[in-house]
Design a protein around this nucleic acid. Structure first.
Length: 354
DNA sequence: CGAATTTGACCAGCGC
DNA sequence: GCGCTGGTCAAATTCG
């Protein structure tokens, strides 16, 4: 099963979150909103990997008018308004076509990813792994939680199985009995001792404990929006593989990701660089500015991800949102604007001289 | 200096 | 009831 998950992870490329909770396919779908579909935009010009080619964001259409006006002004100053404008318009058309093509490629990637995930869910449902618990264990929940192969299916209801520890908790909190509980495995550097799982949300650590079944300490986190947001998570290294962090989430966020809030509020300079899932062995480890766009949607409402998923990649609204994000990121990047200005001036100079 | 983290103490559930 | 255990609290400490 882990092999399958690894394949799944590899195929998903842009995500380093391995969803190992074997539950109903419906619940799997719920998780889809957490999958990092962010594009890692390397501003350096020397990227040549296919992945980057595929994930290369479309050039920013929204600034078109702005840029065009700037181009025109620039051209007027040089006394070559008409030629420059037509050339730039032509260039913009070409870029738009490329933009469209890349968007289609991205959509196709997302579709492939989703179909793979569905296949995984199907496989899990067909092959439930019954994990026999040691009778000597007092805390059956822990014995299951600390196993990296923690793939349990009980009537397709993960809540009933993995929330055993929930039942051990005090009933003081009025959170619903069926609070969503799921797990993720995140591969990290084996030397990395921090128990930090970057998932786009901000967490406040409120405890750490060494448990009986695992020599690695378990860290307890609450959502930084608590108490309004009741979500908690526990992070502990896998017993079998110390390089794998097992994060157990309880509850559901009732707010968008902070990174997304920043993005929508226009404060997205270098956004999500520290708060979005990113593989530690990421291909984006090259030196230089990386712009990571967070495309995960705020979890509005409950289980409507099934219908919302296609919209993420295909609906005009989402596209517009993505484009706005990219445009905002690029236009605020001084390196980008400088490079753009240099490219434009160079092209105009080239046209003039020819 | 305020926010975040650490860590020992405390509480509650469970098995004997 | 007692001991073990996981989960949480909150004072102390660290960090930016």
């Amino acid at each position: 099963m882990l092999d399958l998950l690894c394949q799944f992870e590899t195929l998903s490329k842009s995500s380093n979150l391995v969803w190992v909770n074997s539950i109903s396919s419906k619940a799997i779908m719920d998780y889809s909103s957490y999958v990092d579909t962010s594009l890692d935009l390397n501003c350096k010009p020397n990227y040549s990997r296919d992945l980057y080619d595929a994930a290369l964001p479309p050039p920013p259409p929204p600034p078109k008018k702005e840029l065009e006006s700037k181009f025109i002004d620039f051209g007027m100053k040089l006394g070559a308004k008409q030629e420059n404008t037509s050339a730039l318009v032509e260039e913009l058309n070409r870029v738009s076509a490329e933009n469209k093509k890349l968007t289609e490629m991205l959509t196709m990637m997302c579709e492939n990813y989703n179909s793979l995930r569905n296949q995984l869910a199907e496989y899990m449902n067909k092959n439930p792994v019954e994990k026999e618990l040691s009778p000597s264990k007092k805390r059956k929940s822990e014995s299951s939680n600390n196993n990296s192969n923690n793939i349990i299916t009980t009537n397709g209801n993960s809540e009933s199985s993995s929330t055993d520890e929930e039942s051990c908790k005090k009933p003081r909190e009025e959170e619903p009995i069926k609070a969503k509980v799921w797990k993720t495995c995140v591969r990290t550097e084996a030397t990395d001792t921090s128990l930090i799982v970057k998932d786009g949300y901000q967490w406040r650590k409120y405890g750490q404990k060494v448990t009986r079944d695992n020599p690695s300490p378990r860290a307890y986190f609450k959502c930084s929006f608590a108490p309004s947001c009741p979500v908690k998570k526990k992070v502990q290294r896998s017993v079998d593989d110390q390089s794998i962090l097992v994060a157990t989430y309880e509850g559901e966020h009732n707010h968008p990701q902070p990174s997304q809030m920043e993005a929508t509020s226009g404060q997205n300079r270098g956004m999500a660089l520290s708060s979005v899932p990113c593989s530690t062995n990421s291909i984006s480890s090259s030196v230089g500015p990386n712009i990571t766009l967070d495309f995960t949607k705020p979890k509005s409402g409950n289980d409507n991800t099934k219908s919302a998923k296609p919209a993420r990649t295909e609906s005009p609204d989402v596209r517009k949102f993505l484009v706005d994000q990219m445009a905002s990121s690029l236009t605020k990047d001084p390196n980008f604007t400088a490079a753009l200005a240099a490219a434009i001036s160079g092209r105009i100079y080239q046209q003039k001289s020819s």
